[in-house]
Structures are given as C-alpha cells and as structure tokens.
Simulated assay, not measured.
Amino acid sequence: MSRGLFHLATYVFTVIGVVLLSQAWRFHPVPNSGRTLLGAVIMGWGVFNLVEDW
C-alpha cells in the first residue's frame, strides 16, 4: 500500500514539475527548448534518486 502511494506521489510531482516548467517557459525568460526540458528531467531524476536512497 505505501509503495503504491509513493509511486502515486512521484507521478503527481512529475506532473506538477511539467506544469511549472511550461509556465516558466511562458512567463519568464527560460529558454523554450528541448535541452531545457531534458536538463530538468535529468535533474529531477537525480534528486529523486538522492531522496529515495537516503
């Protein structure tokens, strides 16, 4: 049960992150490119792995 809730939370945070990134692209001087998205995804995976192993 707790493992399922953990995975649900990670999906929710992923969706929130994509929404925040798309808002940043529209309203802030964040470069609108695939490289920005890829960098954000890699950074998110890294933070996730650090938190999960901690």
Rank of each mutant, 00 (worst) to 15 (best):
residue 1 M to P: 08
residue 1 M to W: 13
residue 2 S to L: 05
residue 2 S to K: 07
residue 4 G to Q: 09
residue 6 F to M: 12
residue 6 F to D: 10
residue 6 F to V: 12
residue 8 L to P: 02
residue 9 A to E: 00
residue 10 T to M: 12
residue 11 Y to L: 12
residue 11 Y to E: 07
residue 11 Y to I: 11
residue 11 Y to H: 09
residue 12 V to P: 03
residue 13 F to D: 13
residue 13 F to V: 14
residue 14 T to Y: 05
residue 15 V to Y: 03
residue 15 V to I: 11
residue 15 V to D: 01
residue 15 V to K: 00
residue 17 G to K: 03
residue 17 G to F: 04
residue 18 V to D: 02
residue 21 L to W: 07
residue 22 S to D: 09
residue 23 Q to Y: 12
residue 25 W to T: 05
residue 25 W to N: 08
residue 26 R to H: 08
residue 27 F to K: 03
residue 27 F to M: 00
residue 28 H to A: 13
residue 28 H to M: 10
residue 32 N to Y: 11
residue 33 S to T: 15
residue 34 G to F: 11
residue 34 G to Q: 13
residue 37 L to N: 04
residue 38 L to E: 10
residue 39 G to C: 11
residue 39 G to Q: 11
residue 39 G to M: 14
residue 39 G to K: 03
residue 40 A to Y: 08
residue 40 A to T: 10
residue 40 A to E: 06
residue 41 V to T: 14
residue 41 V to E: 08
residue 42 I to T: 09
residue 42 I to V: 15
residue 43 M to A: 15
residue 43 M to D: 07
residue 44 G to H: 01
residue 44 G to N: 04
residue 45 W to M: 07
residue 45 W to Y: 10
residue 46 G to I: 06
residue 46 G to L: 13
residue 46 G to N: 04
residue 46 G to Y: 04
residue 46 G to S: 12
residue 47 V to I: 11
residue 47 V to L: 14
residue 48 F to A: 02
residue 49 N to M: 11
residue 50 L to A: 11
residue 50 L to P: 03
residue 50 L to F: 10
residue 51 V to S: 03
residue 53 D to V: 04
residue 53 D to Y: 01
residue 53 D to N: 02
residue 53 D to L: 02
residue 54 W to R: 01
residue 54 W to K: 00
